[in-house]
């Protein structure tokens, strides 16, 4: 990778690790995480509201907002960059309440999400949108673990290695985005 001064973090994340990084830090992630986007979030939150068991572990985990292209022969996954995060903003605070430690996506998020990060000790990472070919090379394993009928929107368990991200919002209310102020 090209990054200078990247911080290495191991997944799943402890609260201490999630809170050790600051908005604007370049971070390399190594370990397991889950993918989920619009349709999977609707289903997860519906299960939570119904008081039913979830198909994946949430506590301590990181969710990557990603719907990859199909894996060509000989590769674990196709192109796999982030999708725009704000569409998951209504769902994220509830998942953080249940112990979700971090999310990876692209773009700005609502004040509610930022407050949830601070309240529950979480972090929002930005992956570079449109860098799906490059990011795919940092994914070593991919398996569908829930909702295969959703195709690209299925929940996948990934193993990532030195996966490059930038801290968008940290657990102290800090932001890396232009035009936003730290939470007070």
């Amino acid at each position: 990778m090209t990054s200078v001064n990247a911080i290495d973090l191991t997944l799943p994340l402890t609260e201490e690790a999630a809170c050790s990084v600051r908005a604007g830090d370049v971070v390399h992630l190594t370990g397991p995480l889950y993918t989920a986007r619009d349709a999977a979030h609707q289903r997860l939150v519906a299960l939570i509201e119904a008081g039913e068991e979830l198909p994946i572990e949430i506590a301590g985990q990181v969710i990557y907002y990603c719907g990859p292209t199909p894996a060509p022969p000989g590769r674990p996954i196709g192109s796999a960059g982030p999708t725009t995060s704000y569409r998951m903003d209504d769902f994220a605070p509830e998942l953080h309440r249940l112990g979700l430690r971090g999310t990876i996506g692209k773009g700005n998020r609502s004040a509610h999400v930022r407050q949830a990060l601070r309240r529950y000790g979480g972090v929002y990472f930005v992956a570079v949108g449109g860098a799906g070919a490059l990011l795919a090379e940092h994914i070593t394993v991919a398996e569908v673990v829930a909702y295969p009928e959703l195709g690209p929107e299925a929940i996948r368990r990934l193993e990532v290695e030195q996966f490059p991200v930038i801290v968008g919002y940290d657990c102290r209310g800090g932001t890396a985005f232009v035009g936003e102020k730290p939470l007070t």
Partner: peptide
């Protein structure tokens, strides 16, 4: 990362972006 991504996509045949 974007410039490297363009190179890697040509090299591997993976789409530039998953969308």
């Amino acid at each position: 990362q974007l410039l490297l991504n363009a190179e890697r996509a040509r090299e591997t045949g993976l789409p530039l972006c998953q969308d």
